[in-house]
């Protein structure tokens, strides 16, 4: 078994553990490359079925290409899609992308809160990875959130080998992170190996007169492309290997202030 085989088998193991422990479970799908890999792994874990809903949080600010890609995958993979949003309330309150922390919290975190309340999900599978951000590097694979969605990062329970915790009463839901050990390059190598569909935003093309591509996808106002000539997956892998630019450097909410990601995540952000 090579490194990708190992990562795949471990992630499938985690997804199956999660489903065994929580039948009220859903998978969060951002339409990005990571959570799309996660759906693929779920299909492998359950022999072609995805036995739980896939939740997409619509901020109302996403790229058109993301909505198109979503609909294409839902059809092709026969997914049970739940669209979760807090657009009306956010708009009514006049929350704009200018206030990044408030905007992410209202449009993403609060939308997710509503959906969890409605469906009573006990656990959510998410495609975050440790190499994306130093705060995500601190995560456990099974990571509890309380009723206010708080992440008690100062007092995380031990997690030994491949043994994962159960849910306590004080824990409103568990976040489960099967891709935590994957790196950005692993994800792209896997996309290539499994021949997975890729959103066209990831590929370089002339946008506003410059050859650019999106390395990480989010909302239109807060996501910028980077200069790139990579027009296929092979070229993306080569580019990342040689690049010294952080993956989420095009994501404005991470950089608002030094500890923005920690604050967002403590409030329940993904």
């Amino acid at each position: 078994m090579d490194h990708l085989d190992e990562l795949e088998s471990k992630s499938i193991y985690i997804i199956r553990e999660a489903y065994k422990k929580f039948r009220k479970i859903a998978m969060l799908w951002s339409i990005g490359k990571d959570s799309t890999v996660l759906i693929w792994l779920a299909k492998k874990a359950f022999f072609g079925n995805v036995p739980f809903p896939v939740v997409y949080i619509d901020t109302g600010k996403h790229f058109k290409e993301m909505y198109d890609f979503r609909d294409e995958c839902v059809k092709k993979w026969d997914l049970n899609l739940i669209v979760s949003d807090n657009i009306d309330e956010s708009d009514k309150k006049g929350i704009s992308p200018e206030d990044k922390l408030d905007c992410c919290t209202a449009r993403k975190t609060d939308a997710l809160k509503k959906t969890i309340d409605k469906y009573k999900f006990e656990a959510l599978l998410l495609g975050i990875r440790r190499d994306e951000h130093g705060i995500r590097a601190k995560e456990r694979i099974f990571s509890p959130r309380n009723k206010d969605f708080r992440w008690d990062y100062k007092n995380q329970a031990p997690e030994l080998w491949d043994q994962y915790k159960s849910q306590k009463e004080s824990e409103q839901h568990l976040r489960i992170h099967p891709l935590l050990e994957w790196t950005e390059i692993d994800v792209w190598k896997y996309v290539k190996r499994e021949n997975l569909p890729v959103n066209s935003l990831y590929f370089a093309k002339k946008r506003d007169g410059k050859m650019v591509r999106y390395r990480s996808l989010g909302c239109v106002p807060c996501t910028s492309p980077m200069p790139s000539k990579a027009t296929n997956v092979d070229e993306i892998i080569k580019e990342i290997r040689e690049s010294k630019i952080a993956e989420r450097s095009g994501r404005a909410q991470d950089k608002e202030e030094a500890q923005a990601m920690q604050k967002l995540r403590a409030l329940g952000y993904m």
């Binding site: 190499d131 705060i135 920690q262």
Partner: peptide, 29 residues
């Protein structure tokens, strides 16, 4: 500070929780 990302870790100069990061040499990752 490359690893200590929590604000509390940086203020106190102490690592609180385990973290993982990645690098490579010519031989392996």
């Amino acid at each position: 500070y490359v690893m200590d990302h929590l604000a509390e870790e940086r203020d106190q100069g102490v690592t609180i929780d385990t973290a993982q990061t990645f690098f490579r040499t010519d031989k392996r990752e």
